[in-house]
Nucleic acid binder design. Structure first.
Lengths: 366, 366
DNA sequence: ATATTGACATCAAACGTTTGATCAAGCTAT
DNA sequence: ATAGCTTGATCAAACGTTTGATGTCAATAT
C-alpha cells in the first residue's frame, strides 16, 4: 500500500512535471476540475451536442476556468477548425483622403465585424502592385472573408476570382458598373443615379426654378436630369458645367463660368462636397446670399460640409452603412446563392446652405 | 528490380491515398520534391541555421512550392511559434469623428504594420464597457502587441497593465499627462505645448503684433504664452478667449467677444481647426480681410482646413506619423528597456489664412 | 437474468507547422 | 583502421484545441 501510494505520488509528480507546464490552457483547467480536456472544451464552447453534463461538473469546470483565467488559444482553435474569424478589409486609397469618408467606411466594417464576433484586419493600398504584395496574405488560413473597397484596377478582378476560388469569400465596395467587375462577387455601392436625383429633388422641393449642375460622373448627371424631368422642369444644358475633378476648383470655376456666360440660377447641385464648397465660397465672396439667392448642395456629407462658411447641405454616401452591409454580405454565406449588388439609398442631410437657419433633419431619397 | 519498382510504386500509391489528402501544404510539396517536411519548412522560411542544402534539392523544393501554389497555414505556424504577427489597434472614438484625423492614425498604423510584416486588427470603442467587452480578445494567442489610442478612462489603465503582464506588449497613443497613466506603457503623443508655440511663432514671424488666442487646453495656452514671451512680446490676458469646446462655436464666440470688448488684434491662434474656422468665417462675414487684416491659424490640419473659404493654415498633429511611431515602439522589443514617451514635433502647414495667395510649404516647429 | 436505455464523461486522432536532436555517408588526418 | 569532420537531410515531439466515436455505469424494461 505504501509502495503503491509512493508510486502514485511519484507518477503524479511526474505528470505534474510533464504536463502542467502550460500555465492556463484547457489541460490545466481539466486537471484542476478533474475531468478530461475534451469535456472542458465542449463545456466552454457550449458544444455539448446531445451530451448532458452533470451540474456539479459543470460548475467545477467553470470555476476552474475562472480561477485560472482561461484564455483560449485562438491559433490552435483556428488550426483545427479551419476558420479564423477574421475578415480582411483592403482599401484602395482614393483621392478623398482625409475627408473622413474612409474613416466612416472603416468604422462601419469594424463595428459590424465586432458585433458578429469577427476581427477586422485592415490594409491600405494605392496601386495594383501594392495590392499584389498583399495577395499571399490572403489565404483561408488567415481570412475567412475579404472586403475590397475602391478598387480601380480591372486587372485585379482576376486575382480576386482566384482568391475567391481558394476559399476566401470576397465582397467588393465600389461604384456601380466598374469595368471588369462581372458579377463574380457581392458588391456594395451607393446608387449613383439616386444621389443627384435626391439632391435635385431637395432643391426642387424648396422652390428652386433654375438649378445648375456641376457635373463629372455620368450617372449622377443622369439623376439630376431625371429629377428635373420627373417634376416637369425642362433640362437646360447651359445650366450644366462640366468639371474636371471632384475638387473645389471645379465649383469655383463653375460659378465663374456661369457669371461670365450670364447664366442665371437659384440652385446648384454639385457632385461632391468639395465642388459645392468651392462654389459656395465663390458665391459668398461675390456677395451672393446663400441660401436666399442661391441654394447649394453637395455630395458625401464629409466633415468640411458641416464647417463651411454656410453649413453645407449634402447627400450622404453613407459610407458607414456601406461598411456594415459589406460585412453583412460576408456573413450571409448561403452556398451558391447568386452574387448580389447591394445599392445603398442616399440620404439628404439638409443644412443652412439650402434650408437656412433651421438646422434641418434628414429626408429619405426619392 | 522490377519487383522493387512495383513495391515502390505500391507504397507510393498507399502514401498518396493516406497523406496527400491535404491539397497543398508542406507535406504535399515535400512529397513532390522527395524530401522531408521539415526540410521544406526550413527552406521556405530560410531557417537553415547551420544546415547547408544541396542546390538541386533547393530548387526542387522551390519548384514544387511554386507548382503547388504553397500557402502557409498561418494558424499552425502561430500555434507552434506562439507568435501571431498581429497587432491590435483599439481606438477610442473621440469627438473628432469624420474630420479624417482618425483615418490618418489608422493609415499610419496599417502602413507601418504592413511594412514590417504584421497585420493590423482594428477595433473602435466609445466607452469603458465596450473596451472591456474586447478584453477577452486581447491575448497573446491573438495579438503580439496592442496600440490603444485616445483612451479617456483612467480605470482602464489597470486592465492594460494586466494585458501587458499577460504577454501582450501595449503602446498607448494619447495626450501627454493623461491621469492614470503611470509610465507603465510606451506612449506616443504630440507635444501639446509645442503645438501653439509653433503656430504663435508662425504668426510672429509674419509680423503680427497683437495675437489673440482661443484657449481650451492649458498646455497649448502655455505654448502660446511662451512663444510670445520668448520673442519679447508681452502676454495680454485680454487677448485670450476661453472657449468651452474645440467646436466652431468657440471661434465664432471669440470673434464676437473681442468685437464687443473692443479688443484689437491682427492674428488669431486657435486650439483647433474648427475653432479657427468658426473665427475665420465670422471675420469674413464681418467684412474683415484674411490674412491682410487678421491672420488665422488652427490646429490639426484636418480636411476642413484646406477647404475653408480662405484655406486655413494649421499646425499638423501628424496623426499618420503617430500611428507609424506607435507601431515602431511595438516592434522595438528590447526586453526590460524603460518605457518611453515619444513626443512628435508638430509641423506648421501654412496656407492662405496666414501667408496669402502663395500656398506655402511646411516649416518645422520651433 | 439479460437486453436496452440514458446520463456522463473519456479517447484518440487529427489540424499543419516548427525545431532541436539525430543520422548517414563520404572524407581527411592520424 | 579508427576517430573526427563536413555536408546534407530526416526524426519526432510539440503547439493547444476540436470532435466523432467510444466507454462505463447504473437504472429500467423485458
Amino acid at each position: 500500500m505504501k509502495g503503491l501510494t509512493f508510486l502514485a505520488a511519484f507518477s503524479d509528480a511526474a505528470d505534474v512535471m510533464q504536463k502542467t507546464a502550460r500555465p492556463n490552457g484547457l489541460r490545466a483547467i481539466a486537471e484542476r476540475a478533474n475531468v478530461s480536456v475534451s469535456l472542458v472544451s465542449k463545456v466552454l464552447n457550449r458544444r455539448l451536442g446531445s451530451t448532458r453534463v452533470n451540474a456539479e461538473t459543470l460548475s467545477a469546470i467553470h470555476a476552474a476556468a475562472a480561477d485560472l483565467g482561461y484564455r483560449k488559444n485562438h491559433a490552435a482553435a483556428a488550426l483545427v477548425k479551419g476558420r479564423q474569424n477574421v475578415i480582411g478589409g483592403f482599401i484602395h486609397s482614393v483621392g478623398v483622403e482625409g475627408s473622413g469618408l474612409v474613416e466612416q467606411l472603416v468604422r462601419g466594417m469594424a463595428d459590424a465585424a465586432s458585433s458578429q464576433g469577427q476581427r477586422l484586419m485592415l490594409r491600405f493600398f494605392s496601386s495594383a502592385e501594392e495590392f499584389l504584395n498583399y495577395v499571399p496574405e490572403i489565404s483561408p488560413s488567415l481570412l475567412d472573408g475579404l472586403i475590397v473597397a475602391g478598387i480601380r484596377h480591372p486587372e485585379l478582378f482576376g486575382r480576386l476570382r482566384e482568391i475567391q476560388a481558394s476559399g476566401v469569400q470576397v465582397v467588393t465596395v465600389h461604384e456601380d458598373g466598374n469595368p471588369g467587375w462581372d458579377g463574380a462577387f457581392d458588391n456594395v455601392c451607393i446608387d449613383q443615379r439616386s444621389v443627384c436625383e435626391a439632391s435635385t429633388e431637395h432643391l426642387i422641393s424648396l422652390g428652386c426654378q433654375r438649378i445648375a449642375h456641376i457635373s463629372l460622373i455620368r450617372n449622377r448627371a443622369d439623376g439630376y436630369r431625371q429629377a428635373l424631368e420627373s417634376h416637369g422642369m425642362t433640362f437646360d444644358p447651359s445650366l450644366v458645367f462640366q468639371a474636371s475633378s471632384f475638387y473645389a476648383a471645379g465649383g469655383t470655376a463653375a460659378v465663374a463660368h456661369f457669371a461670365a456666360a450670364g447664366v442665371q440660377y437659384d440652385g446648384i447641385v454639385a457632385q461632391s462636397d468639395e465642388q459645392a464648397i468651392g462654389a459656395l465660397n465663390a458665391l459668398i465672396l461675390a456677395g451672393r446670399r446663400v441660401p436666399q439667392d442661391v441654394k447649394v448642395i453637395g455630395v458625401d456629407d464629409s466633415s468640411p460640409a458641416r464647417l463651411a462658411i454656410v453649413p453645407l447641405s449634402s447627400v450622404s454616401s453613407r459610407f458607414y452603412e456601406q461598411g456594415v452591409r459589406a460585412v453583412g454580405l460576408l456573413g450571409d454565406n448561403a452556398e451558391g446563392r447568386p452574387k448580389r449588388t447591394l445599392r445603398i439609398e442616399p440620404v439628404v442631410r439638409a443644412r443652412q446652405s439650402t434650408v437656412g437657419k433651421a438646422e434641418g433633419g434628414e429626408a429619405a431619397a426619392g
